[in-house]
Simulated scan of single mutants.
Amino acid sequence: MSTFSFHANKAVTTGEGGSASTNDAELAATMRLLVNHGMTPEEPYVHRILGRKFRMTNLVAAVGVGQVQRWDDLVAARLRVSERYRELLPDACSGPACAPWARRSCWLHTIRVPRRTAVVDRLRGAGIDARPIWPALDRQPVLAHVSGNFPVAHAIAGAAMWLPTYGQLRDDKIQYIAEHVTAAVTDVGPGEALSHA
């Protein structure tokens, strides 16, 4: 099964929501039940399983279809922003690997910085919507029962942050953000060099 988020900050958006796809007929039937209160069209108001109301409206679907038709342009616009960050932040590493059969895309440009909280605070003080990435999954209360040692996940979750990455971000704004990232990293003190995650 593949899942897709259509949240407002995604390249293809319907404002909120998402979709799932599968080539497994049984799984597809279960998903259809789940999104429609556990009912089938053949037996309305008979709940075969405990479902929810996850149906997408036709209006929202039309917005999504319009976005999908612009896929190449939307992805290219975000890649332009990401590549510009790489140019303006020259101490960055080469970036994420991409399989030979795949094409790179960018949701949010991610960097790792020393003393991330201080860097994020400095950027927000300059009017830049920088955000720390999510905590490692085993640090989420719902997964508190998971045991194990995940040093890489913890290191990334503690140092990585997102920079504004929407397709219409103007070059002068990207320049402004990059300058403030460099200044913030310099000012907060010693640590690892800036790198793109």
Results as ranks from 00 to 15, higher is better:
V60H: 08
R55D: 01
S94M: 04
Q69L: 11
L59R: 14
L79E: 15
V65M: 14
C98F: 10
G64S: 05
A99Y: 14
R48Q: 11
E83R: 10
T57R: 11
G51N: 09
G95A: 06
W101H: 11
S94Q: 10
M39P: 10
A76N: 11
G64Q: 04
R104N: 07
N36S: 11
V60T: 09
P100S: 13
P96Q: 11
E43C: 06
A62H: 07
S82A: 15
S94F: 04
P44N: 12
F54Y: 05
P100I: 11
Y85C: 07
L89N: 08
G38H: 08
A99S: 15
M39Y: 10
A76Y: 01
D72N: 13
N58I: 05
D72A: 13
L79V: 13
R86M: 00
W101I: 04
T40I: 06
D91L: 03
L88Y: 03
M39H: 12
E43V: 10
R84T: 04
V81M: 01
Q67F: 00
R52E: 06
P96M: 13
V46E: 10
R55K: 08
A97K: 14
E83I: 00
R70V: 02
D72E: 14
Y85A: 06
N58Q: 12
A77F: 04
A61Y: 05
I49N: 03
A62L: 08
D73C: 03
V63Y: 00
G64E: 07
E83F: 02
K53N: 15
C98V: 15
C98L: 13
V68H: 03
V60Y: 08
P90M: 01
V65F: 12
R80H: 11
R86T: 00
V65C: 10
V75R: 14
R104I: 09
A76V: 04
E87W: 00
M39K: 13
Q69S: 04
C93M: 04
V46G: 04
E87R: 02
Q67M: 06
C93H: 09
G64R: 01
L88N: 01
L50C: 03
V81S: 01
Q67G: 09
R103S: 14
R104W: 06
M56T: 07
V60W: 02
A99I: 09
M39N: 14
D73M: 09
T57I: 05
R55W: 02
L89D: 07
W101N: 07
V60F: 03
P96K: 12
T40P: 11
V81T: 01
V63N: 02
E83G: 06
C98I: 15
A92W: 00
L89R: 09
V75E: 13
G66R: 05
R103A: 15
I49R: 04
G51I: 09
Y85R: 08
L88K: 03
V75L: 14
P90G: 00
W101C: 03
L79H: 13
R70A: 07
G64F: 02
R84W: 01
H37Y: 15
R55A: 03
R70C: 06
N36T: 06
L89I: 08
G66Q: 09
L88A: 01
H37C: 14
I49Q: 03
H37S: 13
Y45W: 15
E42A: 06
P90L: 00
V63C: 00
D73S: 12
